[in-house]
């Protein structure tokens, strides 16, 4: 039974980290109808930025976020301005897959040339240490990662639901044409939203890099999992991403412990299909998200 509880705790903590990585993906889709295939590589890019700051300037990984979050925000703005904005609305979603995939290849190439392909990992005192609670060792890095995820997702929620910009974002999300008619600068909102979505990835990338060895190719394994999370949670729903990430990791970890790791993915994807059959928009799909 202790192993089962342990697996649930592992799943919740790791799920927080995955939610952080998936939040930007679902936010960008919700507002812009853009499926950002580059999200996995952006996570890896964020991890490399943290690595660079840590190795070159000795910056603590969490302090480094003060640099990496703005840098990734600017990168997101640049990508939107250079590539996404030029897509015409009729084929925007389909074309965004191709364009963001190409962006991913470019970023991967730049990382390979800059850092090489050997695996690296982020280090800090909290990466391998843990504390005991109710008989379980809780790793600091996962606890910090979960708290960071909760804090950043809360900030996102406040931005979306308690600010003027957030109202513009939600208006654009509901009806772009109507939003334009009432004076919302939809193009500007889209650019800032894309930047925001990519900026959130900085935190996810840092935690990913501290809990996994990575190289420039590591993003491709991630993207399939992140897409599964945002589909289960409901495209466009931040809360859905958190719930889905935790659900995915808890299911997989529990199956790995009580049955076999080989069946972890299978059981999760069977559950995903079952949920989508009952509720095609996911747990907190677009309709629900708009009603928040």
């Amino acid at each position: 039974m202790a192993a089962l509880y342990g697996a649930v705790i592992d799943g919740i903590l790791t799920g927080g980290v995955y939610a952080l990585m998936a939040a930007g993906l679902t936010l960008i889709f919700g507002v812009m109808d853009i499926i950002n295939i580059a999200q996995g590589v952006l996570v890896v890019l964020a991890a490399y930025l943290s690595y660079f700051l840590s190795i070159r300037f000795g910056l603590d990984l969490f302090v480094g976020l003060l640099v990496t979050i703005p840098v990734l925000f600017l990168l997101g703005v640049a990508v939107e301005w250079l590539f996404i904005r030029r897509l015409r609305s009729q084929e925007k979603t389909a074309m965004s897959i191709l364009v963001t995939y190409a962006v991913a290849i470019i970023i991967e190439g730049v990382l390979s040339v800059t850092f090489g392909v050997n695996y690296v990992q982020l280090h800090g005192w909290y990466v391998t240490r843990s504390f005991q609670l109710l008989g379980f060792y809780l790793p600091y890095i996962y606890v910090f990662g979960f708290l960071l995820a909760a804090a950043l997702l809360a900030v996102l929620f406040v931005i979306l639901y308690r600010t003027r910009f957030g109202r513009s974002v939600r208006a654009s999300l509901q009806n772009r044409t109507a939003a334009q008619l009432i004076g919302v600068n939809v193009a500007r909102v889209s650019t800032l939203t894309f930047g925001l979505g990519v900026a959130v990835t900085a935190a996810g990338g840092m935690i990913f890099g501290a809990t996994n060895a990575f190289n420039p190719n590591s993003g491709y394994d991630l993207i399939s999992r992140l897409l599964a999370i945002v589909i289960l949670g409901g495209l466009g729903s931040i809360g859905g991403a958190l719930a889905a990430a935790v659900a995915m990791l808890v299911v997989e970890d529990v199956v790995a412990v009580i049955w076999s790791p080989v069946w972890s993915d299978v059981v999760f994807f069977v559950a995903l299909v079952a949920v989508l059959l009952i509720r095609p928009v996911g747990l907190f799909g677009r309709a629900a998200a708009r009603a928040q």
């Binding site: 342990g6 697996a7 592992d10 799943g11 790791t14 995955y18 996962y142 394994d221 999992r225 995915m248 990791l249 997989e252 970890d253 529990v254 790995a256 412990v257 076999s260 790791p261 080989v262 972890s264 993915d265």
Partner: peptide
């Protein structure tokens, strides 16, 4: 036990 080549989370194993 055998685990898949690509695992989301090695921690429980």
């Amino acid at each position: 036990r055998v685990f898949p080549a690509e695992v989301t989370d090695y921690t429980p194993i």
